[in-house]
Write a protein that binds this DNA or RNA. Structure first.
Lengths: 208, 208
DNA sequence: CAAGTCAGTGAACAACTGTAACCACAACCG
DNA sequence: CGGTTGTGGTTACAGTTGTTCACTGACTTG
């Protein structure tokens, strides 16, 4: 037990992070369900048995990766959903934000997209829980918006879910076009903007 | 080579189908990238080396599964997108159709959802190609619709892609709630209907 | 400073993997 | 009918896997 600091704890965290990083790298070309514990330790340069000091199994490591990939993303919801003068400006900002995030953390995005429906149940559940939290937060933001007057609880939830799914689709699309020619990337951005705009139009005329 | 029929060819197809079926079953609890060739042959009850008579590798088998899961689905596009008197009736019919398909072929749906972003590149590409075909077909249907007057090519493509993605999201949602209590399943159907309706509203007011 | 804690090591295990070479025998074709 | 074709079976190999156990030695604590 003891306290949270100290050279000992720091070294342990460092190794743990090295395992997470190595796993994330290896997962670019395979799924978690085929990731071997030895494979990870080999990539780090540590004995296979050291793995157990940090994770019970590769599934356990996967859950930790979900936390790392999505856990720190919640604060971004407020700023993304924050109202702007122009609706198109908000859309442009959101798309830009997603593009930037994908470019900065491609491995994390790939991991989430891949394991959301992947073969490891605990990881699927962890992702589902995080996305449900996102939807909840988006819903809360939507409820504060002026145009939400008269919207039922179920409608708000539906729209929030639609937005979250759309964010993932967009992120995944950007990921696929990461090292594609400039022109294709611009088309992807344009498609994402249009889709969000169409949802926005539907939202504006929902109560007709 | 020789001709396509005969007792010989029939038996081979039978074994091949058994391999596909066994693989599909095993893939309910893991991803393709962790599926072993021996695992599949063991489930069928044939020798490991017999696998090579039908597939070069498990990735090759995966591509065949994509064909099996999505190849025969194209004719359904026309009937699903076909216009109806009521817009809500069309939506209800489409959702009903998806629900029925998921209930009839849950393993196929799970496979596609899982491997769309999975760790096996040839399979990802095969799925992407099939989905692109779907989008193309949906776009063709949309273009024939009366309400498509004034829509640009890019807008039609965008909307078609949105519909295809939404179909997958809906199918995946239904899959998750397959063995959930009746009430949760009804909520899932209701959510799917609402989301399609919102897209429909956006579509109706797109040219404002 | 002595005692204890614990991250990481090394060897060993049984079980598993993909693949190669060779064989058997039923269906096919001339 | 007799020779050829080719699906599937058998045996074997070299690597890999997850997990166990006892261990070391640097850090922490009283």
């Amino acid at each position: 037990m003891s306290h949270t600091s100290g050279v000992r704890q720091a070294q342990k965290q460092k190794t743990r992070q090295a395992l997470l990083d190595a796993a994330l790298g290896l997962l670019e070309e395979q799924s978690l369900s085929s990731l071997g514990l030895r494979e990870v330790t080999r990539a780090v340069g540590v004995a296979p048995t050291a793995f157990y000091r940090h994770f019970r199994s590769t599934a356990d490591l996967g859950v930790a990766l979900v936390e790392e990939a999505l856990g720190s993303l919640h604060p971004m919801i407020r700023t993304t959903m924050a109202p702007a003068e122009d609706d198109d400006e908000r859309i442009g900002r959101a798309v830009e934000l997603i593009a930037r995030h994908v470019a900065a953390h491609p491995a994390h995005v790939r991991f989430v997209a891949r394991e959301r429906h992947g073969g490891v149940q605990p990881v699927r559940r962890a992702i589902r829980e995080q996305l449900a939290r996102f939807a909840e937060e988006v819903k809360a933001e939507l409820a504060e918006d002026a145009s939400a007057a008269g919207w039922s609880e179920a409608d708000l939830r539906m729209l929030a879910g639609l937005y979250v799914d759309q964010m993932l689709i967009t992120a995944s699309l950007f990921l696929e076009t990461l090292d594609a020619p400039e022109e294709e990337r611009r088309r992807a951005v344009e498609t994402a903007r249009r889709q969000l705009r169409l949802i926005g139009v539907g939202r504006a005329h929902w109560l007709d």
